[in-house]
Design a protein around this nucleic acid. Sequence first.
DNA 1: ACGACTATGCTTAGAAA
DNA 2: TTTTCTAAGCATAGTCG
Lengths: 232, 232
Amino acid sequence: MASNKGELTYIEDDSKRKITCKKRKASLIKKVNELSTLCGIEACAIIFDPSASQPEIWPSHSEVERLINKFMEMPEMEQRKYMYNQESFLSKNFNKAQDQLKRLRDENKRMEMEIFMFQCLNIGCIVNTANMVDTNYLLFVINQTLKDIQWKQSRDQRQHGTVVAASKEEPLNEEVGSVDGPVHGVEQTNMGAMQIQDWSSDSTNDGGNMMLPSGDNNNLSNGFWPSTPSFP
Amino acid sequence: MASNKGELTYIEDDSKRKITCKKRKASLIKKVNELSTLCGIEACAIIFDPSASQPEIWPSHSEVERLINKFMEMPEMEQRKYMYNQESFLSKNFNKAQDQLKRLRDENKRMEMEIFMFQCLNIGCIVNTANMVDTNYLLFVINQTLKDIQWKQSRDQRQHGTVVAASKEEPLNEEVGSVDGPVHGVEQTNMGAMQIQDWSSDSTNDGGNMMLPSGDNNNLSNGFWPSTPSFP
DNA sequence: ACGACTATGCTTAGAAA
DNA sequence: TTTTCTAAGCATAGTCG
């Protein structure tokens, strides 16, 4: 009985196929889990079941996204390179376009991260960070933002001789998209201080902390946050 | 013996782990293949083996990319929604940011597609389109580009009373990034007419042709292509 | 490092509840 | 529909060349 007795073709019978599908999906994911833990391998799976509205993913949506990013950046259009003739008269334009695509991807990533941070502010803390998002990059963005705030603070001090701190009554700047929009200093959220949990025990980021700037402020539980981060 | 006798922990011994890894990776991919064929399911796997430079993927790089695109569009930040409190004072900004991220993603996709088209122009035809890229979207972009060309042609006709056709001696506009740069009409590539193969037999695009504009020109083997597509 | 072999037990198709 | 059970087949850790 077990497995498919030699045959390996599409199962026509609907209910049979559904049952088989369910069983096999479960055991497949189990296998992925085993491989991952036994061999210390990063792996993910995406399974599109037509009968299910959502695709089945493993181990989690965010981890899948993280691995997808890793995957997308790694082979850097491997299958395209062989199509691309270096001698082509299009090479110059093509290289430019590729560079621009890279910038677009980076921008995209940054934006995803900023939105994620927005939600953290909304909730008040980051939970289960290790599995939620590229933690190194998140910290990098956070540090960048903090530096930006510090710079703007000192600039305001130079200009007005005092730190401009927005009260929670001050209306938020609604122009999310403007890079050059005014930033009203720093606001302490009333929804709880921002915290990063389980950061030190995170060992999934194989790149070490190379992405972390040599900044002096890695303790981020100070609750400071820009009231209007700029989304260019 | 078989499998791990109860234990499910990281295998410390290097050679043992490597062997186990190799065997399990193979059978895992076999399982994915079985699930895919038996149940007619779209599935892909990405396995990052630290000892291998390239990640192991199934069934192919391009198919993985296709499913990734499908995945990225489908759940539309599902795990984020539950974190997001509609009543939040950030809701307005947050919605804007989300919209902008969506636009950024679309833009990203369009750019990937345009680069893909560039390569098609370079090679002269699209091979194996069904598995290379979101064919519906590709056709959509192609049609958009064609319409743009037609509009610019008629504009030039209105302005100069004649169609400006670039000869292949005319130097290409190197400013890829400019949206407003001059477009020198239409050029028939000397590298072979653009062709789409196996389009009619493609049944993997479950969305039907809803993305296709009701354009009147779906026959795209006319060899026309913009000499300078604009990459904004 | 790699392939072949093997005993063990995990997986699974089908049936029955 | 889902759960449970079971026989048969597969996967696989370990071993040997």
